[in-house]
Design a protein around this nucleic acid. Structure first.
Lengths: 215, 215, 215, 215
DNA sequence: CAATAAGCGAGACGGTACGTCTTGTCTTTGG
DNA sequence: CCAAAGACAAGACGTACCGTCTCGCTTATTG
């Protein structure tokens, strides 16, 4: 999570309890104050920890918030629901459930904004948040292929089936609906979105750039 | 833009030049410093204006940045390219072009993050940014209907064709690709995404929740 | 006292009341806490002033304490008591009265200690404290010469009568008695000391380096 | 030096070398940083010792500095120079030589300042510094009496001859000259001062409080 | 054309948070 | 039991911004 001393045998070891307390306090502060009013001093106080302890382990507010929010994504799981549509719906709703929590709302977009100017931060986010989401899409795709719902080999003439693209569409749409449009991501919406996506993924033809689309 | 005193007849009028200078200085500071290190004092200095002048016109950093970034979206235009696919591609690429600019990257996501805790800010963003984007989607849909590419009436059995859904998918996917995945939104990607979306929009059937999808 | 902006016509002028409140708060804190536990944050709080206001006017703790203690020396006055002996006694007792106050005890020696490594601080102390003491010695000498108690011209063969030497002896002895020996500088001690000093100043002869002392 | 466990038979004995290293490191730090910037952590590092070791042996910065500076006074010695004047001069110059060293300058006045609020510290200073200086004055007086330069019995009608008074005058004048006036205590000054003092000590008469002194 | 009213620059103000440093204690490994 | 290493809670440091305020001055409109 934070930088691990490779081999420091001597000296008092870092308190493991402090880590958990700090991350929990960070989420609590995110709920109460939001990202911009969250202060490390306040987090330290809430965690019953000295500010120095906090700075010893995290480089700053951004890194701390990423780790605190990342723990929310530990619970992401892809239950085998028997069909691609149900799997996608499940992923959408699970992701939405996390985004609905105020600590995620406040924190996640803010660190993404910060990451536009900090490559290391982006890597940290990718590693501890994005890739965990993406794993679900990859798994879901594999299951659909096993079931025969999707062709086993990625069709080079059909780039619409790329995992990267599908993932950006799913994650982007859910985030935009939840945070920008500020409308609920409920079962109804999830079903509509899933229908749109599956139709897009499974359509038979690739389109020429300016051709007529549907007849 | 900012709140206008409804009837202030007497006294010295506010300098119009100051407004422009401040917004330009804000974008410059966003490029140089990013949202989190941008300070109103620095913006005032860059604009050659007193801090008081700035606070007289904007309530705070968030409102200022929204207005500064909003001006970037003035240039959004939907050229009539003759097909739905080309229109969508155009929208995607125009939106991506704005997002590629550092002042938009830094500022936009940050104010969206802030807006999760500030309803007035969200309204301001919607009004001056989101609705301007959405207008393109609405227009594009109208043109497609006029051309016969899409059915004229929104099909209640086909919610996938809702403007709101389509807009969240387009805007969300572009933002996610650009800022989270940090991959370029170029013509290739835009074409793949457009194909996926059009297939989803024009598919003949609505899917039952757990049915087999494609055969 | 602190650095005076030579000519700043514009901007809000500095509060004169703040200066007085800060210096009074500093003396209060010196009494309560002593020099080493005095913090500028605490002084600011006591004065009902922001820390920034304090740092805007003084470079640090040392400069602030010098100014705060210096005000105690404003009351130094040499009443014309009619004889050299009485004048010296008066100076000794006045100086001792100031040194007896805990804010002087705590602060004065500490800044002198600091001044051993800070030439600017030493100059500030000399200007606002030492020279005000010295003035009394100079005046007392002038009066004694006017009365005929001391020869009018400084005797080059009698360097013992130098003002600098006399001043170091008076000030040094009083400080040492009060702070190092920690014994009271009362009338009895002042009288003994005065006798010793006047005898030294008015003795007829200068001594050769290794000769018998008095004959 | 520091408190010695009266009978600690068991366990690893304390390193005697550590004590010397710590005191030397303290003096080195005093030279480099002065009293106010000297930190115990830095001293420990310079001495190649753990902070714990330091705190185990000294109660704090003040006590440590007193011990470190006190060692400088070990070298004080009164060579029998054959006359009272030469003895006094010798004492003055020896004391001045120590005060000229930056580790003494920085440290001594600071701990004296601290001692105004700490009775135990004052006792420690008296014991390890002041009394060692005073011993020289006592010895010098005894020799002068043996030589017949001073009357054998303390004259109750002549309190100017009290050892305490003489000591405060000598030590105070030297310190004031060296640290407050910041002028060199060289042979010239020492000779003038000695002349003044001896004249004061050996004058025949006690003065009535308001009598005419010299004509 | 003078009076009035608001805008404007400059910069001080009371606050708050920053990220670092020091203090004195505690907890580990190892001699 | 002592020593080194270093983590720990506490809290001060001096700086930077915040958003407000008080100045003296400028620029319009209105009487």
């Amino acid at each position: 999570m934070q930088s691990r001393s490779p081999a420091s045998r001597t000296g008092r070891p870092r308190s493991a309890a402090a880590d958990a307390a700090i991350l929990a306090a960070t989420r609590e502060a995110l709920v109460d104050l939001g990202w911009s009013k969250l202060t490390l001093g306040d987090v330290a106080t809430r965690a019953g920890v000295a500010k120095t302890t906090l700075y010893r382990r995290w480089a700053g507010k951004n890194e701390l918030v990423v780790d605190a929010v990342a723990e929310l994504f530990d619970e992401l799981e892809l239950p085998d629901s028997g069909s691609l549509a149900a799997d996608i719906e499940g992923v959408v709703l699970q992701f939405a459930a996390i985004l609905a929590r105020p600590e995620a709302k406040s924190g996640l977009m803010a660190v993404v904004a910060e990451s536009t100017r900090d490559e290391a931060l982006r890597a940290r986010i990718r590693e501890s948040v994005v890739d965990r989401q993406k794993r679900l899409v990859v798994e879901g795709r594999a299951r659909a292929q096993a079931r025969g719902e999707l062709p086993p080999e990625p069709d080079p003439s059909h780039p619409a089936r790329t995992v990267d693209l599908i993932f950006d569409v799913i994650a982007g749409a859910v985030v935009h609906r939840a945070l920008v449009s500020a409308e609920p991501v409920d079962t109804t919406w999830a079903r509509s979105f899933t229908a749109l996506l599956i139709d897009g993924m499974t359509a038979a033809t690739t389109h020429s750039r300016s051709g007529q689309v549907a007849q």
